[in-house]
Nucleic acid binder design. Structure first.
Lengths: 187, 187
DNA sequence: TGAAATATGTCAACGAGGCTGACTTATATC
DNA sequence: GATATAAGTCAGCCTCGTTGACATATTTCA
């Protein structure tokens, strides 16, 4: 039975669902703050990232990666092109294609965004149980350090005493228990 | 040097950035399809999930978990309450609070959504290098199997020949190279 | 007891970023 | 020369985030 050894408990898929939510929330939070200063959003980030990393990408390839429509892509791509972060060249073998490249400015911004995300990842990998441990410990390490305690505390609440009320509500329509139920339209 | 042993290559933070994107894309794609049948979206899912898992959650706690505004939460919470998936009770120790619980229907839907996500996770954990290997192999295992080859192919493209054009564009304003540059407003 | 703080709900307006559908323009292919 | 393909665009819609202002019930504290 592989348990990774380090700080992670046994992997429960149910716990991982939440950890993935928290890890991703904080993972995209870093670049979001930077992007806001440029008037860009997450959609711009994704485009800039993939164009930076795979120069010469075509529109069709980008659409396949991002899984969004041409119209959605075009809105953010247009911003990035007009503001000089991305440039297009016509394809040489197929002149219908538009090959996408980052400009110098674009590459600089992409690097800045990559830096903060890579920093979080590197920090997580460097933690005990980060690189070689369980997915659980890796994802926990990806969460903002200040928040980790709160997440642990929440997840420890699993199952036992709810604090206030009792267990889950039984009926579909709300059969009045000890706590008053604020129903759909009941007086 | 910990390498996890199994199928993952050495962990590069830069690769992990992309793998996390692809893994998360497919991870939320599963429930999205189910939610659409109920006329719900991702925001409903998040609320339903946390209320199901932590019965008796207060509004304030939920806001802290989701990191959204009261108004945003209220819109989706209202849907879930009106349609009978979630019920509220007034708190007993503090009657200002509204404790949130899933109804039977709500718990059923939550379970259905959890099931597809847990299935993907369990499958990933069961793969060689899934539970005990590197984060890289775990994330790759989280990607939709049909898509894995495409992701690998894309990531293999890293660095070398672009296929069509040449390297990254140097100048800020677009100095005409061999491929014609379709500039901002140049004729 | 009365004032202030707290938990929640709500109205209005706005922006980002998805979507569909329809249509145009270049270019390639047969 | 007809047809298919890559890309761009217009219009309109939906979800889900935001801010700001304000109402109500309840608790806490001086």
């Amino acid at each position: 039975m592989p348990d990774g050894g380090a700080s992670g408990a046994a992997c429960s898929s149910d716990d991982l669902i939440e950890l993935l939510f928290f890890a991703y929330r904080d993972f995209v939070g870093d670049p979001d703050r930077i992007l806001a200063q440029y008037g860009f959003g997450r959609a711009h980030h994704r485009v800039l990232h993939f164009v930076d990393r795979y120069p010469g990408l075509t529109i069709a390839e980008l659409l396949d990666i991002l899984r969004i429509t041409k119209q959605s892509l075009n809105r953010v791509l247009k911003d990035l092109i007009e503001q000089g972060y991305i440039v297009q060249r016509t394809g040489t073998s197929d002149r219908r294609q538009r090959l996408l490249f980052c400009s110098g400015t674009g590459a600089t911004l992409a690097a800045e965004l990559t830096r903060v995300q890579a920093r979080r990842l590197a920090r997580a990998l460097a933690m005990p149980g980060g690189a070689g441990g369980s997915p659980e410990s890796f994802l926990l390490a990806m969460i903002e350090p200040d928040e980790r305690a709160a997440v642990r505390r929440l997840m420890a609440r699993r199952g036992q005493g709810v604090g206030e009320g009792v267990g889950p509500v039984g009926g579909e329509a709300g059969d009045a228990l000890d706590g008053k139920i604020l129903g759909q339209d009941a007086a």
